[in-house]
Every structure is written in C-alpha cells, then in structure tokens.
Simulated assay, not measured.
Amino acid sequence: MARRRRATLERSRRQVAGLAEDGLRWGDFAAAAQEVIDGIVPHDAAVLALVDPVSGILTDTFRTGLDDSLDELFIRLELTHPDPITMTTLTGRPDGVGILADHIPAGLHSTPRVRELLAPHFDLEHEMRSVVRSGGSMVAACGLYRAPHRPGFTADEAATLSALEDLLAAGVRASAAAAAGVAGVARAAPGVEEAQASVLVVEAEGRASGTTATAQAYLDQLGGGPGGTLPAPVRMVAEASRLRQAGHMVSPFVRARTRTGRWLMLRAAPLSGDPGSDRTVVTVEPASAEHTMELDLDLYDVTPRERMVVREVVAGAGTTAIAHRLAISAYTVQDHLKSVFRKVGVRSRRELVHVLTHPGAQGPVIGLGLGATVRKEMLRART
C-alpha cells in the first residue's frame, strides 16, 4: 500500500510539474492542478488562490464547488475569528498544511467558519488547508472541503498535499512570468493613463455606487463578476477597511495583478463625512516598484541574502560598496548576483533593475530565466 501511495504521489508530482513547465496563466494552472489534486485527495469543493503575502488578501481565485458570493464573510471570519489553521498560522509551519478537525476538539461546528459559512451556505464541513510559499513568503493558498457525510481528511492526505507545495510554487512563478509577458506587450489598457489613480465607492453588499471611467477600466482589468459584481480583491480590501474601523488589526490594502499583467495597488478607507455608514472608498492605482519589488522577489524565489544584494543594486551601489555594507566578499556579491540573474532571467544589473523597478516590465529573457528554475524542479520531480 505504501509503495502504491508513493507511486501515485510521484505521478501526481510529474503532472503538476508538467503544468508548471507549460507556463500557464494562473486560472488555467489552478484549474488543471485542482484536477490532479482531486485524483489523490478527493474533495467536494476547492479553492486555489493567489495571495498578497503582506495583507493576506486573496487576489486571484479559482474555485470549484462553491462561489464568491460570500467573500466578505470569509475575510471577516478569517481575520476576526482566528483558528489554528488560518493562512498566516500555516505559513509558519514546516509542512504548511492543517486539518481543521485535528484542532477543534469541541466539534467542527464550534468554529465560526464551518458554522456560519461552510455548512449553511455550501453544505460543507470538513476542511484541509495548505499554503504555497516562495522565497519564504506565502504567495498562494489551497483549501479543500468535503460534505458532512464524507470521511474527514487524514494525515496521509495532508502529507500528500504538502509534498506538492514546491511544484505548486513553481506554477505560481511560471504564471507570474506569463502575466509579465502579457504586460510587456500591453503595458496599459486603453483609456488608462500611466500612474493615474482613481476611486470608487463600495457599498456594504459589495457593489459600487459610483465609478469613474478610469476606475471602471481598472475593474475590467481585474475581472468582475456577472451583474456588475466587483472583483474579489476590491470587495475584500473594502471589507478589511470595515474591520479595521471596528478595531481589528488588519491591513486594508492589497497588490493585485490584472488580466493584462500589470500590478495595481488597492487601498480602502471609510467614506468620510458619512458616519455610521458601511460605504467604503477604494483607491486604485498602478503599483509602484516600491510596492511590488519584494513581491516579485518572492515569486522569483530570491533568498533573503540574495535580496539584500538586490536592494543595494537597485539603490545604485557598486560591488565594493555592497561587499563593505553587507560584510561579505566581492566574490560573494557576484555569486549572489549570478544566482539572481538566473532566477529573474536577465544578463546584467541594468536589466535586473529595469525588471524590478518597472512593474509589468518584461526582461529580454525573463521566460528563460524562470523556466530554468521550473525545469530544475521538473527534473527533481521526475527522479
């Protein structure tokens, strides 16, 4: 039995590795990866989502077996009723996986997420979550769910999901490269000026009561739902602002990549002059390099020591100055830079600085660089 399980896992790793190597956009990769996961960890519903590692807000989500109609309730429960398998908690665990039933001795319905969200609205009860880390930060998350009449998730299934993390991370990085490639061709959507900010007012039920033409163009880039439903990042950042007003320590901002590959920064605040109202003002603008560089370094799997060198390079420091400031040799500086060049897919400091300081820019060989990292993981998966 153990041998068969190992063989099944290795086959699944090869399948996910192949998907990552294909360089699919996130939604396509997540959909295909979910089918692979369902073959080894059967489930009735699933969520695979990209995550802003700083705010913890989901930015691009693939779902099966449930919808996004209750995203505001989800983030409210996630941020105000913490349990042992919140995404932030799992990020600090070596395996990055948690089974809700293992931590709730009083029964699953004693946790608000099951009692108020999963059971009454989706007829789901059992939950297993995992995080996907790159560069030491959470860049994506996975939630698997089963109906009440099904058996709960097991430790073996948790180990199986954990064993896919490195290849899911490779898929996230490959999808980022694919998005950056799109941005290199289409730097801005028609009608949206570079670095132009816009605002919209979000009602409590998750709809906009007024938008400008520029704001609407941004919403179109982020992808809204039917009937004028706002994109999930907008609804979630608005809910985070309401929670902050209620005294919860949350961050009402998120960086989200658009369908055209550009990064946008979303910030939310209560509508001033409207006391007692749940209406929220969301500001949307192209993200600056300051807001995206660390996120890009996470996606490229740049190590903490390497990114110390990168920050110095972006600031304009030379090799000697970097070596002095970081108390390392000039040879070590060069070794770190060679590693970063390979991961990012550039050949020089100038190209590196350009890619990291122009959100949405595409280096001349960005695909090759990221592909090399992915292919290395592919080979490891096949051995």
Rank of each mutant, 00 (worst) to 15 (best):
A158P: 00
P231I: 08
L368M: 13
A361M: 07
D301V: 09
T292C: 08
G143E: 14
G363C: 09
P359V: 07
S162A: 15
R311F: 06
V47T: 12
R93M: 13
G92M: 04
G184R: 05
R93Q: 14
H81C: 13
G181Y: 01
L19P: 03
P233A: 07
V54L: 08
E157G: 08
G152K: 03
A106H: 05
G223N: 08
R257K: 11
W263Q: 07
V313A: 03
L299T: 09
G65D: 10
R4P: 00
A269P: 03
I57E: 09
L9A: 12
H103S: 11
P112R: 03
M138G: 08
V185Y: 08
V344W: 01
E194I: 13
P231R: 00
V132E: 01
S69P: 02
H81L: 07
I328K: 01
P304H: 03
R14N: 11
V139Y: 04
R259C: 05
S329D: 12
L168F: 04
S134Q: 12
R3G: 04
I328M: 15
H109S: 14
A163Q: 04
T160Q: 02
V201S: 11
L295M: 10
V97G: 05
T283W: 05
D156W: 03
R187I: 02
V41K: 00
G224K: 02
L118M: 13
L73A: 13
S272C: 05
E125Q: 15
A330E: 15
M293F: 02
T111R: 11
V314K: 05
L58H: 07
I328S: 02
A269S: 13
R325G: 12
E116A: 12
S175W: 03
M236I: 09
V16W: 01
L164F: 09
E377D: 14
V250H: 10
F74I: 01
G107H: 07
D67E: 07
G261R: 02
G107W: 06
H121Q: 08
A321S: 15
I40D: 02
L73T: 14
V132D: 04
A268P: 04
F341L: 03
S110E: 12
V201C: 12
M1W: 12
G23P: 08
W26D: 03
V131A: 05
R11K: 13
S288Y: 01
Q34R: 12
P105C: 03
S130I: 02
E10S: 15
G98C: 09
G345N: 04
L90D: 10
V333L: 01
R380Y: 08
T211N: 10
F253K: 09
Y145G: 00
A169F: 00
F62G: 10
Q34I: 03
R6N: 15
R350V: 14
A176T: 12
G39E: 10
T229W: 10
G273P: 04
Q221K: 01
H109Y: 04
E165Y: 05
I322W: 05
D296V: 00
A32Y: 08
S130K: 03
